[in-house]
Design a protein around this nucleic acid. Sequence first.
DNA 1: GTGGTCTAGACCACA
DNA 2: GTGGTCTAGACCACG
Lengths: 132, 132, 132, 132
Amino acid sequence: MKIAPDTFNVAVGSAEPIYRQLFDGVRRRISAGQFRTGDEMPSVRELAQVLAVNPMTVSKAFSMLETAGILQRRRGLTMVIAPARTHRVEDAAVLLRPSLRRAAREARELGLAREQALQLFNDVLDEPGSET
Amino acid sequence: MKIAPDTFNVAVGSAEPIYRQLFDGVRRRISAGQFRTGDEMPSVRELAQVLAVNPMTVSKAFSMLETAGILQRRRGLTMVIAPARTHRVEDAAVLLRPSLRRAAREARELGLAREQALQLFNDVLDEPGSET
Amino acid sequence: MKIAPDTFNVAVGSAEPIYRQLFDGVRRRISAGQFRTGDEMPSVRELAQVLAVNPMTVSKAFSMLETAGILQRRRGLTMVIAPARTHRVEDAAVLLRPSLRRAAREARELGLAREQALQLFNDVLDEPGSET
Amino acid sequence: MKIAPDTFNVAVGSAEPIYRQLFDGVRRRISAGQFRTGDEMPSVRELAQVLAVNPMTVSKAFSMLETAGILQRRRGLTMVIAPARTHRVEDAAVLLRPSLRRAAREARELGLAREQALQLFNDVLDEPGSET
DNA sequence: GTGGTCTAGACCACA
DNA sequence: GTGGTCTAGACCACG
């Protein structure tokens, strides 16, 4: 029910803004069914400390998630995952497609055949997950 | 020998900086064998006009390519693709891997099975190329 | 820890580009031990104002220093001197040699004897420092 | 009497403009007594070919030397070193000092003691001459 | 507040 | 013609 703060991970050195990593990370985990309606987020302060980032950054991500109808604010308590009716639970395909499109365009410019690109993706899927 | 200016394409609205798009585009085309040592780049001004961007933006990309040993300056003339010994022609896999890693990480967070992710990538590879 | 903006000085009229003067100046001060890992650079805007140059000029120098692994970016904060492992702290001899080589070549072309050239350098070392 | 074209050498890759290298090279050799009044320069065309540079570049250097009273034009013939009365034969010290000043300033910023700087210059004077 | 990106336009150095 | 440098000023993203 309560989501552990170490569920999240951000790459501070990444070109991807931290708040965006948090925002997208929550959306993906909801899509994956890992976070469910009513689950309690860590507090801004706690999460900021665990991730070693500025609380304002976490707060910004949370606010965006609230605006998107994904989180709900509760006076004096931590935010919770909103009921599905306030936001569309995105299909995994929809969330993943932008990254795949980018990779596909690059593969095309690199002159890679479909089989080569797919093989390469297959290999990468084997790697243990780490942040970039 | 002389590279046509319309070989390049940039998405001015993209989050990816224009100069970065140019930089990476050149690297990929070299990797693909489309650009070769000694090939002459368009002039900064010409390319800037064709792409409808500021010459300084193009100049910045060219300077970065020179710093990377990929382009060579010739006083009074346009820049040329440098000999391979000054810059390691990157393997396509090396250039593509970062984008695939990102997609793989997202697929993992989305709880997608390998087969689903590969199928999705396969579908996207069918789409006609367009910039983002 | 914080580096004072007036530590830097540039000669705007010099043939040496301003951004290059800044770049080399930082390298030399690191070599001299005057700047150390973790020291905070002035902000781009502050330094630009003190030097009475355009912020983009300072920014270009900083970017080059970052590319060289000498400075590190910190989102929302000023840049800092990077740990030595990312950039080789250059030996003073290495940094000074190019200028000495040039002088030596000229002395040779001028037909100066070693003693004359050394004497002349000794005299010049007495002059109070000023920019060119 | 006729100056051999291979007396000159330029570094096309240098930051120093080619025409400047030629201009200063002639001045230094006159100062050294290597070139004397009446000595015949190579033709623009010949020198350009030997150095593998654009004839306009050589021509520019020659014109500047003429403007400085150092060379004299002769209809249909190559230019010659002008008599000393039309230009000051510069003292070697005057011609060398700018480069030494630069080196001295850098040595200062590097925190080098006088003895270290002199020692380093002495070492460099031992190196066989090459262009930079 | 921080730095990043881009523009429009100028001037210079070089060939 | 080429690229390099700099300016003034705008807007954005991030924290």
